[in-house]
Design a protein around this nucleic acid. Structure first.
Lengths: 339, 339
DNA sequence: CTGTTAGCGCGTTCAC
DNA sequence: GTGAACGCGCTAACAG
């Protein structure tokens, strides 16, 4: 089965391949009678056009590529969902390039601009260097960044500095002064992927503004993940003068903090305030105070912008920036210190 | 950029296209000197082979298709991660077909057996009918089912009946008699996707064995999701004679139950025992007692089996069944009734 | 060893 | 309105 080609159909219907092709793409100029005949043969042979051949001939793939680090993280998944929604509308499929190492990332940055395999590329969370951006810009297909940034590329982002500021400010307004920040690794150009270090800037900014000195022992970084965050929180809580509030760069990490607090019998929010970032689904269940960012929407906007670029290539050079709003969601893990 | 073809390289290097192709696929029979020359030209022109053309010529795509309902669910994501691990080893890419409606499912079942676009297909959680299985069997590419079953297809599964039994038995052994079961919708051939109804069978079996009569008011079903589960649990808890234990068909749903208990001030596990299914990442954090199934492993095993089939086509007809083990993980949400 | 040529399956002119 | 020939970019078989 399924070795049947357009030629077989043509033969069976007693017409030329051109006619079959015209029927397939419902071209107007084909007599009703012949159309019927061809459709009959198609059904009889259970013929389906070979999409690869079609792609080569058309120069179009009907695929969208998504390059994402750790697509398993709740935030990425939520974004992907948004993307999927738009793809379905356009009858496009999704080719996923997961990246978990620096090598893989660079390899993909090298290969992907070529852009065979898909008609447009979405890059999550990985901000390209100038050199890479240049390649992307001159590649065969349009590119849109989501949760990543570069001045010359189309992008949908949030203001991470502001987000960090908002979270920290909330804690300060509550009366906290011993405020810690934990995040994934900032230095690694791969791991940090920007956001955490921008949020850190916001954190510093809020502290400065309030005249609260920065304490290096209140800042910890490690690989992303619940257990790592738990460990960092333990270290923080074991300090001679432990923080009264912890700002975690992601809700996932906030969960680790909650866990550590629980381990040590530290009451949240009475003895420790915890604020996260993202507002992933379980955040509500955990009553976690957090900074909400429009995850699903970012996928929708990114995909929509990408399709605009595909349909209208000039658009691709515009380097539009879509800034999504942030919102503080006060739930039950933050309160005045010692309350 | 990137419109450069193999012919341009050939011209630039002053050789024939055949030679360039040979260099590309590092065919042994090409003199070192010419190879150098060609590689030089390739670099100079920044040439990358067009993969679509390559695929058409080779009849091989280096893609694996994954068809999954709601790939956003933690369980699917975890499986995908397992798949990704194996794909990376084989230098294959992932084409994702998300299905959220019956129509989409049927459309994919119709199109996908054609198997252009990928060299092998993984189907998650969707058990095909006999008719579809037949199509899959005669399709162009091998298929492996993960968390889905059909006697004629290769598959990696768990014993869901047994899982349901284990969960219920655990509750019974603890002394519970008023045991409820909540799940997603069983009837919908799409939504239920088998597992929940099999687990229900296990639930009934354990009850029967213990001589505990089945109570229809103790069984609820609704769409999958935390809020829906929360509502079902509320209904259960509002019963004149509420259950003392609830078995949720998935951890996600168990979270909804926990939430409802919290809403009503019902202490877990003192006044209500809760057991889930899957053992997703947050289950540990929530101290949720649950039935652990090897999610990540199922992806690994499924992908590995698929590659075996790709390399060895006879294997594809074998309809091998890989049964993954289940394990009861006792944490802190179950206890004797009224303890 | 290497250049040339014939497909891979389909869409698309271009004559008829 | 419709059939035949060509091209998409590449690999493989065949000469040389």
């Amino acid at each position: 089965m399924s070795e049947v080609t357009i030629r077989d159909v043509a033969k069976a219907a007693g017409v030329g391949v051109g006619t079959v092709s015209r029927v397939l793409n419902n071209h107007p100029s084909v007599r009703e009678a012949t159309r019927k005949k061809v459709e009959e043969a198609i059904r009889a042979l259970n013929y389906h056009p070979h999409s690869i051949a079609r792609q080569l001939s058309l120069g179009k793939t009907s695929n969208i590529g998504v390059m994402a680090p750790f697509f398993i993280r709740p935030a990425s998944v939520e974004r992907l969902r948004g993307v999927e929604t738009i793809l379905a509308e356009h009858k496009y499929d999704l080719v996923l390039y997961n990246v978990e190492t620096k090598e893989r990332r660079d390899q993909l940055f090298d290969i992907l601009p070529r852009g065979d395999m898909f008609d447009g590329l979405l890059i999550f969370t990985l901000s390209p260097s100038d050199r890479v951006a240049e390649r992307l810009l001159h590649g065969r297909v349009p590119v849109v960044l989501v949760d990543a940034s570069h001045p010359r590329l189309n992008r949908v982002i949030i203001d991470d500095v502001k987000g960090g500021y908002m979270a920290t400010k909330h804690l300060i307004d509550l009366g906290h002064e011993r405020i810690a920040y934990i995040s994934d690794i900032l230095e690694s150009p791969f791991e940090h992927v920007g956001a955490s270090s921008l949020r850190y800037q916001g954190y510093q900014q809020a502290l400065n503004e309030a005249g609260i000195p920065l304490r290096s022992e209140y800042y910890r970084q490690d690989q992303h993940g619940i257990p790592q965050a738990r460990k960092m929180a333990h270290d923080l809580l074991a300090l001679p003068e432990p923080p009264t509030a912890i700002f975690a760069a992601s809700d996932t990490q906030a969960i680790g903090v909650l866990q550590a607090a629980h381990d040590r019998g530290v009451a949240v929010p009475e003895q420790l305030s915890v604020i996260g970032f993202d507002d992933i689904e379980i955040a509500e269940f955990l009553k976690l105070t957090t900074i909400h960012q429009p995850l699903f929407t970012s996928g929708v906007e990114g995909a929509a912008l990408l399709f605009q670029c595909i349909e209208n290539p000039e658009k691709a050079r515009e380097a539009q920036e879509i800034l999504l709003p942030l919102r503080l969601i006060e739930r039950a893990t933050t309160a005045p210190p010692g309350s």
